[in-house]
Nucleic acid binder design. Structure first.
Lengths: 336, 336
DNA sequence: TTGTAAGCGTTATCAA
DNA sequence: TTGATAACGCTTACAA
């Protein structure tokens, strides 16, 4: 049973008023008598009226619609950002178009023009990795905010996670737990995020007059199996290590695996901190992992707010960094 | 630099033709002289013209837009379905609105009306768990397809994964590997999916005259830690078990963990099959896990096709089941 | 082959 | 407080 759609005219007719009045009544304009408004509202609900936002958008030049253009296949970063944005927009005011370019520039251009022709009010671009990505250009008719991965054009506005601060946060926590021989095992050295987290970690270590356990930061890959491999090497070179800061939760899971294998107690012998707060990995670990949360939902929320403020006006520029937060679970504890 | 938007009128003026001719030229209508078309196209690209789909939609009654209403917080199931749907729709013909109701009925109604007032051409509803969910009702102005979680109204069309077949697939593979003492550790017994997978598994076992190792199916929770607990009990009650079929990859990771702990070789002593093909869990396991893939992308693709066929026409009804496929990795191998 | 004009469902500006 | 009426940007008969 497909149902007919009522238009404002139908509502007006049923309520015995003009279309103009019906419009005003439904949109809460003040110059409408209360009884008239009631009649119109009654008619609207009776007809199950749902205003056509296309027609409205044609006039108001606003669609109440935002495009979220992502390249993050698994939705791991985009989903929390999407949530935050939806949150900030409020449930029924603005809807979000999610398009996944799957890391393909051509597909990205396609999606971009599809979104523009649908007259989105603004765009949020979420990159695949936290390094800078090509700007969509400056000649777009709507404001654009880059989230997670900054634009390579400093005139654009980018919202990113503070990786240096995150690294510092992790190490600071380990130091407060009384650890002194702290290793850092992390991902691909070509990622800015890996470098930044390592820098933050090392700075905090240096403040205590410490060096990373094993003498260096262990760069490698963003995988569980690298976490395993690195940990085996680490335990050999530096058997008295008492804490590991892993550059991602995946890596942390690998670290944990080998620590178990070698009968090291976590956190008794070795404390462990991950990065990402990826629930599936972190909550199910044994013990559950302390980790750094990048606060992506807040990032999405702010992106939405900035975008709304910018619609019709202008946007700021530059890179805005968002602090992460440490989520403590059982994999870290004070040294007894 | 915010750029002005060109309208069809601007294009027509620049090309020295009427709006109607410009429209025909750009839309590939045949009754336009080639040279005229060229001139119009040239003007359009010069002005960076992007047609306003709102205006077009107002006339054609089609927006080229589909709503994907999900309740699956993490996007674990919706993302592949979204991908499949985007795929089938083709890059620039149709865009997808993704809305997450977060399991909240009120939010779902909100999103629904937002989507309807945006005049989506159709809806795909993805449930949070593979049990039946309340129908959105029959009195909607657009076709609706339920994916993953079927509607509780048999007059709706639902596309779901064949869990019974999946269970059979897993056990069949283990049997072909020469295993005879096969246990099934799975999630919450209140989930239809758990029951269905168990039924498929037991049927296949029965065909070989076998019973599940340990005498029963181990229902519990969809978590890694239940996988661990159940495996400990299993190994005690039935130490000669030579295969485990886990009801999810999460559970499988728990099983694997305890098998390692108790120095059982996988797949040498015990073969292991998971369910979901959740890459992060499965690819990083040691060894990588054989698992059942629910084929959600295909489900999304078909949902999109059905939806398109239904727009303007009518939809079928009932529940359509999609077979999964077995992805073999190193956690299973023939008994030597 | 091109142009004129009507109309899609709203909102906004007036005048009544 | 209400109602004609003109937009919004496009497609589509129909006329030229």
């Amino acid at each position: 049973m497909r149902v007919e759609r009522a238009t404002l005219r139908d509502v007006a007719r049923l309520a015995g008023v003009s279309v103009a009045t019906a419009s005003k009544a439904l949109n809460g304009q003040p110059q409408v008598r209360a009884s008239t408004r009631a009649r119109v509202e009654q008619a609207a609900s009776q007809l199950n009226f749902s205003p056509n936002t296309l027609a409205r958008g044609l006039i108001t030049q606003r669609t109440g619609t935002v495009g979220l253009l992502t390249s993050d296949l698994e939705g791991r970063f985009s989903i929390p950002i999407l949530m935050g944005a939806e949150d900030a927009f409020g449930t029924d005011r603005t809807s979000v178009f999610l398009c996944d370019a799957r890391g393909d520039t051509i597909r990205e251009r396609h999606h971009l023009s599809a979104l523009l022709s649908r007259r989105v009010d603004g765009l949020i671009v979420v990159g695949a990795r936290p390094d800078s990505r090509p700007s969509l250009g400056r000649d777009l008719p709507v404001p654009v905010i880059y989230a997670y991965a900054p634009s390579d054009d400093p005139r654009d506005l980018s919202l990113v996670s503070d990786n240096e601060g995150g690294g510092r946060l992790a190490v600071d926590h380990l130091i407060r737990c009384g650890r002194r021989r702290i290793a850092h095992i992390t991902g691909d050295a070509s990622y800015g995020a890996a470098q930044d987290r390592a820098r933050g970690a090392q700075q905090r270590l240096a403040e205590e007059g410490l060096e990373p356990a094993g003498g260096e930061v262990w760069f490698g890959m963003w995988s569980e199996s690298w976490g395993r491999g690195a940990t085996r090497m680490l335990l050999e070179r530096c058997p008295d290590v008492d804490a590991v800061f892993a550059g991602s939760d995946e890596i942390a899971r690998g670290v944990l695996d080998v620590l178990h294998e070698q009968r090291r107690d976590v956190p008794g012998d070795v404390a462990l901190v991950g990065y990402d707060n990826w629930n599936i990995l972190v909550a199910n670990a044994r013990p559950p992992l302390t980790t750094v949360d990048m606060n992506l939902e807040q990032l999405g929320r702010v992106a939405a707010q900035r975008l709304f403020a910018a619609i019709g006006g202008t946007l700021g520029s530059g890179i805005e960094k968002f602090p992460g937060k440490l989520i403590t679970r059982e994999s870290t504890a004070p040294l007894r």
